[in-house]
């Protein structure tokens, strides 16, 4: 029987959506290969994360604990996770494609000498082999890979895979044998942004804006529309042009040299839709473009479009969204 291990990103102490989606993807893959799903979490105190993972659909939760793991250390985490993987001999190891997953999964893959696919949007089990498909060349193409040997490692793009739920997972507590003196690179400080702001990659709705907003002083209109969806739902995105112009911070940039996002609903307001921008958002479930120029390339990827001036459309749209969300 194949074992699929999902390594949780529990940096905030809790399990967030991208990890739950990875467990969901593992449950679906396990159904195809008659496998079972084990969720790993590493840290100093994993109790809240374990409670979240017990309901995630995994059959077993493994909690790797050590005081040395209180702060994230890529090499330290990889070491204890790799040691534990030896007991499970998994066919597949999955992580969410989060800041932690992007850093940690390749280290685990290197220790396993395993093939890995980053930012996967589909998982495969064909003829006894595992693999994945992912966007390449800025989302202009998809490549399908199959592993030549086991195990196979992948990180999964957030907001693509379905969350499954379950109960009755067994929990195994493991005292990880690692001392603080063995760690190489360690996180020393963590500056969290304000908690009422949703991280861009986790937002269900993104309101992204570009040059069409004419200047940073007009972003109240963008903030109003973002807020209209209610607290904890929306985040503001930005095109590369306005980040380079200093209107908005780089952390808001969507696109090839910014963040890759896949929200349920993406507004592109006054964004022409350069290929570099499309690379960051074309897998959003629903794309709405608002642009004065009816020939703007953004309309080619948009599901819905309004040809018009953002300054006229936005106040009415904000009011209509507020009314719709209230019902």
């Amino acid at each position: 029987m194949s074992k699929i291990v999902v390594v949780a990103d529990a940096r905030s102490g809790r399990i967030k959506k991208p990890t739950l989606e990875a467990v969901g993807a593992a449950v679906d893959l396990a159904a195809k290969c008659n496998g079972s799903v084990v969720a790993f979490v590493a840290g100093a105190d994993n109790a809240p994360a374990v409670a979240d993972l017990q309901k995630s659909g995994a059959a077993q939760v493994v909690s790797l604990r050590s005081p040395a793991l209180a702060s994230y250390s890529g090499d330290g985490y990889a070491k204890v996770i790799h040691a534990e993987l030896g007991k499970h001999a998994p066919s597949v190891v999955l992580m969410p494609h989060t800041a932690m997953g992007r850093d940690l999964a390749p280290r685990i893959a290197a220790l396993l000498d395993a093939g890995m696919v980053s930012d996967a949007t589909a998982l495969h089990f064909e003829g006894g082999r595992f693999g994945a498909t992912k966007p390449v060349y800025a989302g202009k193409a998809y490549r399908k890979y199959l592993a030549r040997r086991a195990p196979f490692v992948a990180t999964l793009r957030p907001n693509v895979f379905e969350i499954r739920s379950g109960g009755g997972a067994t929990t195994t507590e493991v005292a990880a044998s690692i001392g603080a003196g063995e760690l190489l690179a360690v996180v020393k400080e963590l500056a969290q942004g304000s908690t009422d702001r949703v991280p861009l990659q986790e937002a269900r709705v993104i309101v992204a804006a570009g040059r069409g907003m004419r200047g940073p002083e007009h972003f109240g209109l963008i903030e109003d529309l973002t807020a209209a969806f209610g607290p904890g739902v929306g985040a503001i995105g930005a095109s590369r042009a306005i980040v380079d112009a200093g209107w908005r911070p780089h952390r808001e940039q969507v696109g090839q040299t910014g963040k890759v996002v896949s929200p349920q609903l993406y507004f592109a307001i006054g964004i022409s839709g350069a290929i570099q921008h499309l690379a960051g958002m074309r897998t959003a479930r629903c794309i709405v473009a608002i642009n004065k120029d009816a020939n703007a390339p953004i309309f080619k990827v948009a599901h819905y479009g309004i040809v018009g001036d953002a300054f006229e459309v936005l106040p009415a749209l904000t009011a209509a969204i507020k009314a719709a969300v209230a019902h």
Binding site: G115, M116, R143, K144, A147, F299, Y304, G305, L317
Partner: peptide
């Protein structure tokens, strides 16, 4: 390589989007 490069595919053709005439229609 540990992976086999099975295939490279263009993204599925997306049906053209719809230009809507008003905010109400969009919502």
């Amino acid at each position: 390589p540990a992976l086999e490069f099975v295939s490279l595919m263009l993204p599925p053709e997306k049906p053209p989007g719809r230009i809507v005439g008003s905010v109400q229609e969009l919502v």
